[in-house]
Amino acid sequence: MKKIIKLRVNGEDYEILVEPYWTLLKVLRDVLGFTGPKEGCGIGECGACTVYIDDKPVKSCLVLGVEVNGANITTIEGLSQNKKISGIQKAFIDEGAVQCGFCTPGMVMAINALYTNVSDPGEDDIKEALKGHLCRCTGYETIVKAAKRAKEYYKR
């Protein structure tokens, strides 16, 4: 039986009809059209689907839509507001940390969240934050560099 849920996504309010077994990822992508979060595995193994629920990074394939009724969600589309991209997005460009781009939204969300908690993350904090995120293209080198470089943009 479908249920009505309310979600606030990237600052906009939505009221939608969802099946109880739909994941938050499916709701965001297929119902609301936020296709920034990606599905690499659907079972919590790759991190590509990471979004924020009330500012906390969560793998949206592991959460059901009905579970988060009333929640405040941010997706990668919500990180760049008013045409301004966030510090970590800039740093990814600086360091050439994007290749195929499929892991990128998840990586960016995780690192941006790290900076809201730690102002000067070290290599180990970065690796801890990204340990559940797989990238098959980069060997992670440029991603770590970008995570470090983002420091310049976050301290203001």
């Binding site: 990668i76 589309e77 997005q89 460009i93 050439g96 994007v98 781009g101 939204p105």
Partner: peptide
Amino acid sequence: KRVDALSKLTGR
């Protein structure tokens, strides 16, 4: 810089 970087970074 990569021509596809920005769209891949913003989810577009």
